[in-house]
Amino acid sequence: MIEIKNVTKEFQNETAIDYKDMVFENSKSYMLLGASGCGKSTLLNLIAGIMAPTTGSIVIDGKRMEELSQRERDKFRIEKIGYIFQDFKLIEEMSVIDNINILNIEGIDTQGAPKLLEELGILDKKNAKIKHLSGGQKQRVAIVRALVKSPEIILADEPTGNLNFAIGEQVIKELVKASQGKTLIAVTHDERLSKYFDFVIDMNEITSGKRDVVSEEGTKKC
């Protein structure tokens, strides 16, 4: 369970985001909707431990993230969280499999990668360089890298942002399917994809994200 408690995040340009308390249940999928700048990606980064909140707490399975050291947060992220970045965060000159095997540096077992690549239909691209792949294929590689370590929490920041609707929908379906039994929090602008998630949190309804606010309890899917 992920709890957001009285969290605010201030940036150097003096903009700030205040988050209302919220809870993400284990094994559920959440879709975060909202305009740019309202704090969706920041929330994912706070949960992942990439950023620290200015005030408040993020509690994951009873652990207060702000109380962990940088090394502990790194360890938590590499072991428990699969993060799918909007811009993929892949090394363009390396092959698909090498981009996944980068996790071996931290001792993560990536033997399950071929199976996941097959499930996502890109096993034949295993040895292809990332720079030779389409946006959809790159997104699938990023998904495999996030899932191969069997994380408890999957965070996906605009996983369909670079894709057209048809491919984006396919990617979301695959992502949700592969995330069965895990907590999935995905940020997207596209309301049409909401039907694939257990919960939708509309962050637009709250504020622009610049001081005073953001977020409310998760709205049950319509």
Partner: peptide, 19 residues
């Protein structure tokens, strides 16, 4: 870019330095 990428996916500073 490479170091930022590795840090984002959770690879520790110690391992990156070692690499």
């Amino acid at each position: 870019k490479e170091i930022t990428l590795m840090r984002l996916i959770g690879i520790s500073m110690r391992k990156i330095n070692m690499l």
